[in-house]
Nucleic acid binder design. Sequence first.
DNA 1: TTCTAATCGAGACGGTACGTCCCGTCTTGCC
DNA 2: GGCAAGACGGGACGTACCGTCTCGATTAGAA
Lengths: 198, 198, 198, 198
Amino acid sequence: MLPQTRRTPAGAAVLRGDITEAIQNAVVEELAAVGYGRLSIEAVARRAGVAKTAVYRRWSSKLELVLEIVSGVASQKLSLPDMGSLPGDLTLFLTILTKALRHPLASQIIPDLLAEAARNPQIAETLQQALRNTQHEMGVLVIQRAVARGELPAGTDPVLALDLLVGPVYWHLAVARHPLPNDYVPRLAKAIAAGLRG
Amino acid sequence: MLPQTRRTPAGAAVLRGDITEAIQNAVVEELAAVGYGRLSIEAVARRAGVAKTAVYRRWSSKLELVLEIVSGVASQKLSLPDMGSLPGDLTLFLTILTKALRHPLASQIIPDLLAEAARNPQIAETLQQALRNTQHEMGVLVIQRAVARGELPAGTDPVLALDLLVGPVYWHLAVARHPLPNDYVPRLAKAIAAGLRG
Amino acid sequence: MLPQTRRTPAGAAVLRGDITEAIQNAVVEELAAVGYGRLSIEAVARRAGVAKTAVYRRWSSKLELVLEIVSGVASQKLSLPDMGSLPGDLTLFLTILTKALRHPLASQIIPDLLAEAARNPQIAETLQQALRNTQHEMGVLVIQRAVARGELPAGTDPVLALDLLVGPVYWHLAVARHPLPNDYVPRLAKAIAAGLRG
Amino acid sequence: MLPQTRRTPAGAAVLRGDITEAIQNAVVEELAAVGYGRLSIEAVARRAGVAKTAVYRRWSSKLELVLEIVSGVASQKLSLPDMGSLPGDLTLFLTILTKALRHPLASQIIPDLLAEAARNPQIAETLQQALRNTQHEMGVLVIQRAVARGELPAGTDPVLALDLLVGPVYWHLAVARHPLPNDYVPRLAKAIAAGLRG
DNA sequence: TTCTAATCGAGACGGTACGTCCCGTCTTGCC
DNA sequence: GGCAAGACGGGACGTACCGTCTCGATTAGAA
């Protein structure tokens, strides 16, 4: 039996149940293209090859639409393997972080959502949770391991440590928007390790 | 002699020539309120208590409007007095930076413009220049002084140093949007100094 | 089954499909109020309680809008029952004419459209057609009947006759804007009959 | 001594005191071109090659501007020489009337002012006076002479007579906008004389 | 001759309407 | 019942004029 199909005027055939997925993909692309502020259900539906009613039947506003997608990403708790030493853990963490921040969609969408979070508490809260489930947990884990190994003093402030870990890379990539120079990650890892120790 | 005034139908009296200023203030407020993407000339004019034509007579698009304002801020080259030692210079720099980033309008507008810069090269370029004239120059100055004093090795990378200087604070305040804990600035200054030294 | 309705934000319920009619009524009222020259689509939409787009979806200019309405009136070909004698026919004709010209909207709109016709050929043409379908055909009919009855000579010029029939009433009501004195219609009918007979 | 001149940027030299006259000419031309409803002081000033302030210093509104011009025309009381017989007087009167109504500016402006009079009492009043000073007085004179000569009965209604005199010509020229056929005036005069007599 | 007052142009101001383009909402009718 | 199609009200666009108002320059006549 053939899967049920629908035909758009352009002739494209889309699997029936894939409408939800098509919309969500379209949302991500639209977010990257025009940002949250200019994102419109109309454009999302157009990009997904779907009628507006199909979108509104699933989500009642563009806020809901975006939050559900961000939440989906945020809920993936990441784990960080133990590399045996603070510099090793730092290097791995920074490598993962730089890779994530260099992903084209992420680098377009994240600053936009952060900006929107400045005026929309629901987006802010969802993003905080996403941060907590990713960078925060991973970063704290790195610090705890280093303290346990005796590489860092017991009173090391995880908040300050996290700022030192994530801030420079975020600033360099997402704000200053420069490419990473050679050996950036290991040199940064070394500096952070020294900074936290001293 | 009284200054010449104009009277709006509503009876408000506005100093002539202040129209330009009123518009620019309105732009800043609108940017903070709704962001660049949703900023409309119509709303700016309304908030400034001015006719749309008065805006279009001065700027031909909302991009020009915003760029001129950002450029205005960016052109104020700041100087940093020499505090005599690296920790002193770092503390002063971080104090200025945290104060700037905690300004309500700045904390609303900067992330928005950064997000917009991801898809608008002109905004990106203008922001880069603004950064260069402020954080960048000040930060490099701090490093050069420390090298001259022998507090840092001659080969210290100013790029990495700047990322360490600005990144954590920006991340903490503008991204994570948390208040600064006690003694944050001196502790961060100490950690950065240690990190840069070795 | 109840008729389908739409609800405006103000709560008014308007029958679907009546939008076209509401717009046309508004056009007539606006024409009477401010004339063709100052008629604006915006005001029409406002008066009709309808969005501007709803107007532009139907007509592309105020000229089209007005022409369609005038054409609508013009297309109603009127017939004139035979009263059996020239004075009778004349009286009936003049009665119908005076009634039409005393209608408040007509007396406001007709002079305005005539004035506009002096500089707009399309309006002029449409009005000519309207005249032909109403006064002209009826008037010629009256003359033909009288000739057939032997009340008027065979060579009676219908053009001159029509001018005598319509001109005085139009002048009195629409130009001089005076009310009709007592017995005006029968006295005028008698004079015209005598005049045509020679 | 040369007359004092002023120079416009375009280089045209205009006699100083002629500004008033230039404006009034421009008003007449604008009235004919766009009608009262769309007439604007701005366009008048432009056509006259004069600044808007020069107009507003003399008249406070376009109504005043137009009324003064119309009044100027209206104040010229016309007299009609006695041709010795009713047909002769009628023919002369109709000849003058048709000549006036065929003047290009008149045929453009009169219908427009009549239309405007339907919604502006001041214009209506001024026009009535103009009519009274021209057609009305002349027409009544024709009737009175004919009564005195015994060509018309004593009880002849001057109002009805005037409608018969002016209406057909106005209708034919200004409303139906047709050219006058051959012998129109004498044939019309004959018909009117017969109509009034019988 | 200098001053003052009037008048000129030029043009910025607030405002209204233009005709267009999207948008979110809602209804309809096909499948 | 879900879907597309599309009309609806609404809002902003950027433009074009308009009447009002202010300005600086030029002129004319009085001091």
